[in-house]
């Protein structure tokens, strides 16, 4: 079992939690060929970067962790609860904030109403929804624009609103699927600040961008072909760099080296995961 996350625990309902999500023997896919096969993984508090090329299975993994797609095989545990039915999935979703890669929105909603609606969808307690909505909008810097219609926002603003919808109510697990797509450099810097501020949640950040991982993630997981190629800190990934690997930074070269290496050669990273 590959365990990811910072050493600091989070508290949910007065209970100290070290393992936010745990998957074992996960096989997942949409056709005959599984996208993910026999994956074992454990995530704790902190920010984990999920790196991998297109088709690596990042979005599939996040959809599975979000309990949107039931696994073909294997188990998913969220906050210690085995998710095995619609009922247990619903219970898990109360603690999961999920930003889909290509998320839609009701264009006619104001930003405030959109985030509040997402809080309602997550069953944030009624008494907390108003404050949770304000807090989420403040965190993403949209408090001043809360009355603006979603359809009038720029791409970056929409991303921010989506992140607010994902973090409203401070869920234990925040899953962000390619959240920086379409953001300009300034917006990406703002986004990094935002992700750093998600203290107290386990955050999984799926991205193509190695520099985002380097900037904000405490842990990194490299997925390719549905298998885990590497788990560790960004510094440990940078140590994998070889001179002949392409890339402008040590981390990029490390990432490319990991992707280029045969699974059998990744002895330290393949443990617990079928590569």
């Amino acid at each position: 079992m590959r365990s990811l996350g910072s050493a600091r625990p989070i508290s949910r309902g007065g209970v100290v939690v070290r393992s936010v999500v745990r998957v074992s023997g996960l096989t997942q896919g949409y056709g005959r060929d599984p996208v993910i096969s026999g994956l074992d993984l454990e995530l704790g508090p902190g920010i984990t970067g999920l790196l991998g090329p297109n088709g690596a299975g990042k979005s599939t993994l996040l959809r599975t962790l979000a309990t949107v797609t039931p696994p073909l095989e294997g188990e998913v545990h969220v906050l210690g609860e085995h998710v095995r039915s619609e009922r247990t999935a619903r219970a898990a979703r109360r603690e999961i904030g999920y930003l889909p890669q290509d998320f839609g929105y009701f264009g006619h909603y104001s930003v405030h109403d959109f985030v509040r609606y997402c809080a309602w969808l997550r069953e944030v307690p009624s008494a907390r929804i108003a404050e949770a909505t304000r807090t989420a909008l403040r965190r993403v810097g949209l408090a001043e624009r809360s009355g603006v219609r979603m359809r009038t926002l720029s791409g970056g603003m929409i991303r921010r609103a989506g992140i607010a919808a994902a973090v409203v109510g401070s869920p234990a697990l925040v899953l962000l699927d390619e959240p920086t797509v379409g953001l300009d450099p300034a917006q990406r810097l703002e986004f990094r600040e935002l992700v750093r501020s998600l203290d107290g949640s386990a955050v999984v950040l799926s991205t193509h961008l190695v520099e985002d991982v380097a900037a904000v993630c405490e842990r990194v997981l490299v997925l390719d072909g549905g298998s885990v190629r590497f788990t560790g800190t960004p510094a440990e990934l940078a140590e994998r760099a070889v001179p002949e690997a392409p890339g402008d930074t040590e981390l990029e070269r490390g990432y490319m080296a990991v992707l280029g290496a045969a699974p059998g050669a990744m002895g330290t990273t393949a443990t617990g995961a079928t590569a």
Binding site: R90, A91, P100, G104, Y105, G107, L121, R122, E123
Partner: peptide, 21 residues
Amino acid sequence: RRRRENAGGWMDAAARPAPVM
């Protein structure tokens, strides 16, 4: 239209029972 706008993605990941939504 809700499906077309892909807004159903939020509902797929919602804790709220689908019939209520």
